[in-house]
Simulated scan of single mutants.
Amino acid sequence: MYEYHGWITVRDTAVDDEDVDRLRQIVEAIRLRIAQIASPYLLDLRWMNGEPFIHLGGFSNHSLSPDVLGLFEYVAVIAPGSYGLLHVHDDEDPGHENEVRVHRLVRGMLTQHAEELLSPCIPTLEDPITG
């Protein structure tokens, strides 16, 4: 099982006063990248209150191609002021089968952490199998 939920606030730089034309170019580049991702799951890029946001989520039988994490890596490169989180539970990930992992995007850097509020999955989220 591969479950993921994430979001990104898209920003060109960490400065609040951005070049709107440059940000629109970045968003269009991201929109093209999203169009290349063949996913039946949630993947949404939209402007809200003058700011671009990406929301994504899905649940499949096996780990997806690197497209989901690759999108975060792509945004980190072209919009290093962006920030967001991607929560992943992959029960086929050796050594992390019973964890929810968090990929954190901040200032062009993508790092991975254990999500302590949702891990270990058993018994935090699910009861152990008995019998």
Rank of each mutant, 00 (worst) to 15 (best):
E3V: 13
E3G: 11
Y4N: 04
H5R: 08
H5K: 10
H5D: 11
G6T: 02
I8F: 03
R11P: 03
D12I: 07
T13S: 14
V15L: 11
D17I: 12
V20D: 10
V20H: 11
R24N: 12
I26L: 10
V27P: 00
A29W: 02
R31G: 03
R33N: 01
I34M: 03
A38Y: 05
S39N: 04
W47M: 09
E51K: 14
P52D: 05
G57E: 04
H62W: 07
H62S: 13
S63W: 07
S63C: 10
D67H: 10
F72H: 01
E73Q: 13
E73G: 09
E73D: 14
Y74G: 05
A76R: 08
V77F: 07
I78P: 00
G81H: 06
L85Q: 11
H87V: 02
H87Q: 08
V88T: 07
V88R: 00
V88L: 05
V88I: 12
H89K: 12
D90P: 07
D91P: 04
E92G: 12
D93T: 03
P94F: 09
P94A: 10
G95D: 06
N98C: 02
E99K: 09
V100I: 08
V100T: 01
V100G: 01
R104G: 06
L105P: 01
R107H: 14
G108Y: 03
L110N: 01
T111Q: 12
A114W: 07
E115H: 08
E116S: 13
L117M: 13
L118R: 00
D127M: 15
D127S: 15
T130W: 14
G131I: 04
G131S: 11
